[in-house]
Write a protein that binds this DNA or RNA. Structure first.
Lengths: 334, 334
DNA sequence: ACTTTTTTAGAAAACGCTTACAAATATTAA
DNA sequence: TTAATATTTGTAAGCGTTTTCTAAAAAAGT
């Protein structure tokens, strides 16, 4: 490719001058600047990211980490949708996105090492086992890090208001006359704990008793397991009148089971879930939509702030979602 | 970070020697090599990718391009699932994945420029408007490129056997007694053309007449539009007995419409679609599963071949899918 | 013991860029 | 006009690697 040197030669100036001209530095005459920029464009000049990075210690490259081993990874719409919005925001700020792995040169390594190798300016941890020592190491390094849906005290985080989400769902169902809830929740992560807090507190506030047997653990994004739990639930003597599922996607498992039993959601039984992915809207599922767009955007902004101003105060942002009123919660007569 | 120089000092050798030792070059004594490697590990040395790239012109970084403006982008399970498998393969071969954009430094640019800027070793074009001049420019540059589901003569490609896929679907439905087909297909891309070829040829071979009015154009991944087309179809005087939809996801739109009309798929009417995403399996949809795993893996292998051996012959691989027999195609009495 | 060959290590340049500092030129002040 | 100041350009070093070529040391042949 054509380099600074060639432009310098062609313009009869030094490479320093060319560099300054192309970077719009102030200590260069306007006429020269323009002449050089024009020439550079003509010659099809393109900056070499490696060379600049080597010199400036800035890569304008952000590492994105996810290690959702168990389930869907990228295929999880929640994740991909956050990533998409993160990427867009990064793009307009001049940053690129590279996936973090823990292999370097085909050899096993650690996340942190990989980040050092690539000299990422910062890192976003989006969907991960936040107790993984390798991730802890990364988070506690001096690299700027932002986490999504998990809070470490010392680094910026963007979280969804999971507690409020479940509160709203429960209150909505109560307002439509439901009293006997079941909650099939996801695996016991921080997110789940928050949701359960919302669930219990809303019930208590409304004076509703929760029988423990109606609280079942499943997994996020796991259609099979969710189907199984639903089957268990429906086999109980006193079937609840409203079931809350871990997420929209896993609800698809339940959908089948309900059909088998001849139950129509929104008529014979009420169901709600969480996420608000497109699929949910398509099938009219009542759910709580996470604002993945905001999550990605804000996370990216926070990270870039942290990168560009190391003294920036660590902030934890909470992003509100909204109830999507589908057709799966019946209006009961009182 | 600790650099070659510091290891050199600490070991009392030159940086050249350290470099050779760490790269397992032959012209270094085994004892020194081991001593240096040990020391490097102790000191927590990590290679600097920028420096190496600057010197060697190899970044071990692959650019991935998708520009699915209209619809889902990353959220498309077909895409994310290919990407996931591509990424895994790249990882084990020592390559990282970075998204290609057409902004550099926050300013509009072109895909090709961005690739030059980042010095990608190669590029994968996965989901894109393959007629976009910017993409053509990229593909016809001298960068190694692999395309997925689209073939340019002069660069390696991995494609799904779309023609065969539709043939199998049609033949399956025919074997179960269907004769009156409707096909709501996606927008007119190469993929769609291939699928239609499969559709028409299978019908012809089985001596089945296709009425043009039963062939409707919709979009991939567009629930709304698919619902609308389905509605149109169901309003026709002679409702077809088997409808083929663009893809599993958009079928969700049809699902609603069918329910409205009181039609149960697999009982009152038969439906099939394409992709074989998890969702389809969950709801028992008869579909043709694309082997996204193989698509991603093979694409990555081809690309790395092209990168590492510029003389490698250009190969186009076709990946077979398989029919997923769900519960949405009835068995008719003859 | 002396040459020849092989093995091992180092010196130095280069990759493309930025930047502190010095130098040259133009502008203004006195 | 001359000195002081402001503006513009250039010099050169350095970022962390790799690599070619040279040199020294060790091993092998005579």
């Amino acid at each position: 490719m054509v380099s600074l040197k060639e432009i310098a030669k062609s313009c009869g100036v030094s490479t320093a001058t060319v560099s300054k001209a192309l970077n719009n530095k102030e200590d260069i005459a306007k006429a020269t600047r323009e002449r050089i920029q024009k020439k550079a464009a003509e010659m099809g000049y393109m900056l070499d990211a490696s060379a600049r990075a080597l010199r400036t210690k800035r890569t304008y490259n952000i590492g994105v980490l996810y290690n959702d081993t168990k389930n869907a990874g990228l295929a999880h719409e929640y994740f991909s949708s956050i990533l998409e919005s993160f990427k867009k925001t990064a793009e307009t700020s001049g940053y690129d996105i590279t996936f973090i792995t823990h292999t370097i040169d085909g050899k096993e390594s650690t996340y942190l090492k990989h980040c050092e190798y690539r000299s990422f300016d910062g890192v976003a941890v989006i969907l991960a086992d936040f107790t993984d020592p390798e991730i802890l190491e990364l988070v506690h390094s001096d690299l700027p890090v932002v986490t999504i849906d998990y809070i470490y005290d010392d680094c910026p985080a963007v979280v969804s208001d999971n507690t409020r989400g479940l509160q709203e769902l429960v209150r909505y169902a109560i307002s439509r006359g439901h009293r006997r809830f079941a909650y099939i929740h996801g695996e016991m992560t921080e997110v789940t704990r928050n949701r359960m807090m919302g669930f219990y507190s809303a019930c208590r506030l409304e004076g509703i008793e929760i029988e423990e047997k109606y609280i079942l653990e499943s997994d996020y994004h796991d259609i099979e397991m969710c189907a199984e739990r639903t089957r268990e639930l429906l086999a109980m003597p006193n079937v609840p009148d409203c079931i809350i599922f871990p997420d929209d996607y896993s609800y698809l498992g339940a959908l089948q089971v309900l059909a088998e039993k001849g139950l129509t959601p929104g008529k014979d039984i009420s169901v709600m879930s969480y996420d608000g992915i497109q699929l949910a809207k398509a099938i009219g599922l009542t759910t709580y939509e996470q604002d993945t767009n905001a999550l990605g955007r804000i996370a990216c902004r926070r990270l870039i702030e942290a990168i560009e101003d190391p003294e920036a105060i660590v902030e934890h942002s909470v992003v509100m979602g909204k109830l999507i009123e589908g057709r799966t919660v019946t209006q009961k007569q009182v």
